[in-house]
Design a protein around this nucleic acid. Structure first.
Length: 273
DNA sequence: TTCCAGGACCCTG
DNA sequence: CAGGGTCATGGA
């Protein structure tokens, strides 16, 4: 494990890890601890410096926390009104995280009709049952590790009706019928079409995977909280379909609509869920 | 007990 | 296309 310091001009680690985009980071008195690419990472922030303990290269950490995104420029694009400005002021420095596509896809399959503590538990269960043991931590299971799951192992993870979808997509990735890395090079609509072929992946989960792991910053996942805040603050309480809301958001906020979504989500979401 | 959760699917109208 | 029931699991 190396320790290094990264200067971070516009960044807030706590908001970034608490805003509900990732599910495996844990906080203790010494800061945060997480697992990326089968590798344990410790991170804490002191002022404008991010202090990291990790086997990964500085470049990988920069990449993971999207520290090369020009956040001030992004704010200029999405600062359209008092509501979003209040959210930005409250959570200034919060960045999207560039997650691993496979883990992101499974995580958001787990999110379907579920609460965040339960999602975190399912992902932890999956990692302990199928993942690589990293002495007292567990890596997120690969498609190969998951595809060998027995019925009993899957049952232990308490996935409910999501279990079959997860096993199904693991096998699909093993057969290379779904190649997540290739979706990074596709445009938003084409990549989304591919994701929607997966059982259990609808508009919302697809947009989450596109936004959080495939660099499609225009993706605007619409869930119950986003629907509520958008209808209340922007649509004069008029009902609108998720498709309408998504199209409105991409028009209104532009190419960084996904960043606006994360600020509105954290702004709207009740703290305990 | 009943209701509901960062939805998706399937079936009706 | 829009609306509603159903799907495991667990906490309030």
């Amino acid at each position: 494990m190396k320790t290094y310091q990264i200067p971070v001009p516009t960044f807030d680690l706590d908001h970034t890890l608490r805003c509900g985009q990732v599910f495996r980071w844990r906080e203790n008195k010494d800061g945060w601890i997480g697992i990326v690419d089968n590798s344990v990472i410790k991170a804490k922030q002191e002022g404008d410096v991010l202090i990291v303990e990790s086997d990964l290269a500085t470049e990988d950490i920069m990449n993971y926390f999207r520290l090369n995104d020009d956040l001030d420029d992004i704010y200029k694009h999405i600062s359209k009104d008092d509501v979003i400005n209040e959210a930005i002021a409250r959570y200034w420095g919060m960045r999207l995280i560039r997650q691993e596509p496979w883990e992101c896809l499974i995580s958001y399959l787990c999110s379907i009709n579920n609460r965040i503590p339960q999602i975190e538990r399912m992902i932890q269960n999956l990692s302990m049952v199928f993942g690589t043991n990293l002495n007292s931590f567990y890596g997120f299971p690969s498609p190969e590790q998951l595809s060998k799951a027995t019925h009993d192992q899957l049952k232990k993870c308490k996935l409910g009706f999501r279990g079959n979808w997860i096993l199904d997509v693991a096998r699909k990735v093993c057969r290379e019928e779904l190649q997540l890395e290739k979706l990074k090079n596709m445009d938003y609509q084409s990549a989304k079409r591919e994701l929607l072929k997966v059982n259990g992946v609808g508009d919302k989960v697809a947009d989450c995977v596109l936004l959080y792991s495939l660099d499609k910053l225009e993706a605007f996942p619409v869930d119950v909280h986003i629907r509520r805040v958008v209808q209340r603050e922007y649509l004069r309480n008029e009902r609108a379909s998720d498709t309408k809301i998504r199209e409105w958001a991409e028009r209104y906020f532009g190419k960084y609509a996904g960043y606006a979504q994360q600020y509105l989500f954290y702004y709207e979401r009740p703290k305990e869920m």
